[in-house]
Amino acid sequence: MEINEQELIRRAKKGHQDALEQIFRYHLDSAIRLAYLITRNWATAEDAVQEAFLQAFRSLDSFQDERPFKPWFTKIVVNKAKRTKDRLDRGHLPYDLEEPNPHRAFAPEEHALEREGVDALFQAINELDENHRLPLLLKYVSGLTEAQIAETLSIPVSRVKSRLYVARQRLKKHIAALEGGGSYEDI
């Protein structure tokens, strides 16, 4: 979907509902995925994303038109999702990520081994500590650049690079251990 983001934001700032709705629909998918992978609970992910959109739209006046919207908005989503997750952790509410995802669909022809590989890799990602998991999610789910990840997490780019490197190394090691070999070593 091709949209002129700057034009949309200018119109949204003037209060055009259709512009706000377009921004919402354009960024909803990656926002809800990211929030879910942080909170590990669909209901709270929806709450976090809803709050994030509200905050973003209410703060649009302070947003500079020439800057990309996604990193700015993603930072809000991350903060809302982390805060919600903290509330979950304190309240001992159940996580639902570890249960099989009912919405995940594999193509019929997909091989069982590939499915197992995906499950194993996902498990390994979930076992990463937050410092290494979050940059990974921002890169692969939100599609942010390393510089944008650095801005979102308020850390230097070199630290983002090292965290991504360490995260990938750990994932490769985990998968290699499960498979009894090193299938990704040559990539």
Binding site: E21, F24, L28, R168, L171
Partner: peptide
Amino acid sequence: FDETIEQTLRQNSEWSGSADELWSKVSSQ
């Protein structure tokens, strides 16, 4: 490996909720 990670995360974060419902909550608030 990058593509595999991306695919894994995508397959495990499929949202079945309604964008319309969520938008109506946001816009009404």
